[in-house]
Simulated scan of single mutants.
Amino acid sequence: MNTLILRTTSSFLFTLLLLLSVFLLFRGHNEPGGGFIGALVAVGAYALYALAHGLSAARRLLPLHPLRLVGWGLLVALLSALVAFLLGKPLMTGVWFSLLGVKVGTPVIFDIGVYLTVFGALLSAIFGLEESAKAHRSEEG
């Protein structure tokens, strides 16, 4: 599916969907949204871009391999959960602190870990399915 309209609009929609994804990520602690739904929107943006421009073009837009993002996400989520424990509070209790003049809490950091984990896992699955479909098409033709 490589039409001019799809290629033209996918670049604009890719940026717009990633911005919406980040908005949902940071809005999610107090209102509907969060790391999971934000990551789903981001994966949708990459899937759309891959449909329009090809899998290799979508892979070039990623800073890391999707499975590395899963590992980093799990690490970030674990570290955010351990902060309270290390301060003598129950595990996963919210702790807020000031970072560069901005008040940051461990629930937001946990959401970032969830975002990275879900994003990496789903994107890896989608890219794997696309590679499998491409191999299957080349065997037929």
Rank of each mutant, 00 (worst) to 15 (best):
L123C: 08
L17D: 00
A81K: 08
G54K: 01
F36P: 03
H29A: 03
V95R: 04
Y49P: 02
W72Y: 15
L18W: 01
S124D: 07
F14Q: 03
F14I: 00
Y46K: 04
P107H: 00
S21C: 04
S124Y: 10
L86H: 12
K89G: 08
A50G: 14
L6H: 10
L122Y: 03
Y115I: 03
T8L: 13
R68P: 09
F12Y: 12
S80T: 12
E31W: 11
L122N: 00
I5T: 15
A121S: 09
L18R: 04
L51R: 15
H53C: 09
V108R: 05
G120P: 04
L64T: 10
V104W: 01
L78W: 12
L40A: 04
H29T: 13
A77V: 09
G113H: 06
I126R: 07
G105N: 00
I37Y: 02
G34R: 02
S11Q: 14
E31I: 10
V95C: 05
A50D: 12
A81R: 11
T8A: 13
D111E: 13
T93P: 10
S56H: 13
G113V: 07
V95E: 08
L82T: 11
G33H: 01
G94L: 01
A58M: 07
L82D: 12
L67E: 07
L55K: 12
A52N: 01
A58T: 08
L67C: 05
W96T: 14
Y49R: 00
E131M: 06
T9R: 11
A52Y: 01
G28K: 01
L4C: 13
L74W: 01
L13N: 02
L4E: 15
G71N: 00
L20F: 15
S98R: 14
T106C: 09
S98N: 14
L13F: 10
S124L: 08
V118C: 03
L78R: 10
P107G: 03
G113T: 05
F26E: 01
V118G: 06
V102I: 13
I112F: 04
